[in-house]
């Protein structure tokens, strides 16, 4: 016996993919939107992002240390959470409030439940909702692009979503000047959260992630598709209304970057389809009938909570197994 047989526990086949590599891809995909937000909202946007990233990393390192667990700062997941959280805030957000958001995202949502892969809801999304309920005024200060976000009395305006909520029966032309043009919507020259405004940059980032096979296209497409179909009917087949609904608010950011979070979305394809449709449905219902103009964050959180049930419903059947009822029938026959 020259060579001994190696016996080891599974997994036996390993890929070269690492968490750090995946997170690095996500960071690269988020860069175009970050650049565009700096273009629109100035260096205040960059400052906000840097503060969020730094405090997320510090909170991650500290809480791992206090809980006596190995340090996981190197996997870059805290950096991604920081960038996405910053994207979800208005550019004029007071920095200390953003730090509280990072505390909620990293310590409460992620580390208290066991760290990366153990959180049951998306950390950045939960932090956004907690900030929204805690500081409603600061979280609704939508700075107008190309004006100074540093100034405490920065020029603010209603987001396209708030205008759309008042539109009756899909008649967007009635809103007049209150709505930006569709080109402006696509490029991002309108009020909104710092990173959600530039749809085209987010779509590019999303496509990059799909090409790199970091995210599967199932959730984004079912999510956006469901919203499109519902808005088509709600807007009495006015395509312009549908376009505004798809490009406005946090839909692109949510569908590409937050609904696809590994630990809070279903594993197999069937589950992903149910998840995406559910997100789209709740988003549309909140936008059309809710008291809030935008519902992407709540839809993702609600579907995150349902994920364990979706997984149970869609567990694949092992090869060769038959259903219990059928098995009983056959046993009776024999």
């Amino acid at each position: 016996m020259a060579k001994k047989l190696t016996v080891s526990a599974s997994p036996h086949v390993r890929s070269n993919e690492t968490t750090t590599g995946i997170m690095l891809d996500v960071i690269i995909a988020l860069m175009p939107a970050l650049v565009m937000s700096v273009v629109y909202f100035g260096l205040r946007a960059l400052t906000l992002t840097v503060v969020c990233v730094c405090s997320c990393v510090i909170f991650e390192a500290l809480s791992r240390k206090i809980m006596k667990r190995p340090n996981t700062v190197g996997d870059l997941s805290a950096v991604v959470t920081g960038i996405i959280l910053a994207f979800n805030l208005p550019a004029s957000m007071p920095l200390w409030m953003a730090v509280i958001g990072c505390l909620v995202a990293i310590v409460v949502v992620k580390q208290m439940f066991g760290g990366i892969g153990q959180n049951f809801v998306n950390p950045a999304m939960t932090a956004r909702i907690i900030l929204m309920t805690s500081f409603p005024t600061a979280m609704a200060k939508w700075v107008v692009p190309f004006t100074s976000a540093w100034h405490p009395d920065a020029v603010t305006a209603a987001t396209p979503m708030a205008v759309l909520a008042g539109v009756q029966g899909g008649d967007v032309s009635a809103a007049g000047d209150a709505l930006p043009t569709l080109t402006q919507m696509l490029l991002g020259a309108h009020g909104g959260s710092m990173g959600e405004v530039c749809s085209i940059a987010l779509i590019c980032g999303g496509l990059y992630l799909m090409l790199r096979k970091v995210i599967s296209p199932v959730i984004p497409f079912t999510f956006i598709g469901t919203v499109a179909v519902i808005m088509l009917f709600a807007g009495s087949f006015n395509l312009e209304f549908v376009a505004y609904q798809l490009l406005g608010g946090g839909l692109m950011l949510g569908a590409f970057f937050m609904a696809t979070d590994y630990s809070t979305s279903p594993i197999n394809k069937k589950g992903k389809i149910i998840f995406g449709i559910g997100c789209g449905l709740i988003t549309s219902l909140i936008r059309l009938f809710g008291s809030l103009p935008e519902g992407v964050s709540f839809s993702i959180i609600l579907m995150n909570i349902l994920v364990p049930h979706i997984e149970n419903m869609t567990t694949p059947k092992p090869f060769g197994e038959i259903k219990e009822k059928k098995a009983k029938k056959e046993a009776n026959k024999a």
Binding site: M97, I100, I130, T133, S134, F135, P136
Partner: peptide, 10 residues
């Protein structure tokens, strides 16, 4: 700068 969420049910 009260954090309203503390006096809300959640």
């Amino acid at each position: 700068n009260p954090m309203l969420i503390f006096i809300l049910p959640p």
